[in-house]
Amino acid sequence: MTILLFGVTKDIVGSPSLSIPTASITGRSVPKTVKDLRIFLGKAYPELSKLSSLAVAVNNSYAQDDQKINSYDEIALIPPVSGG
């Protein structure tokens, strides 16, 4: 599953996108919902879980935490940005 990164999330991860496993080979759980994804990413990148507001888009629509995700979905992390 490819995740597009915007704003400070790009700086935190250090690249414009991120690939995460969708099938478990090792028996580790893989994210099935937006909430799972937030937890998964928060463990890998603790700075991400510190953001007060972080929108997750699935297929170009704002997604609630209970929304299911799969490997075909296009996902984006969209934090607020402040510059002017």
């Binding site: 704003g7 400070v8 700086d11 510190k50 953001l51 007060s52 507001s53 929108a55 704002y62 934090p79 607020p80 940005v81 402040s82 510059g83 002017g84």
Partner: peptide, 24 residues
């Protein structure tokens, strides 16, 4: 879109982060 206002140390501003002249 963004329910909660980020705290001041979460997200850098242009002063700290820089901005390329043409972007604004």
């Amino acid at each position: 879109l963004f329910p909660e206002m980020p705290s001041i140390d979460e997200i850098p501003n242009c002063d700290d982060n820089g901005v390329l002249g043409v972007l604004p």
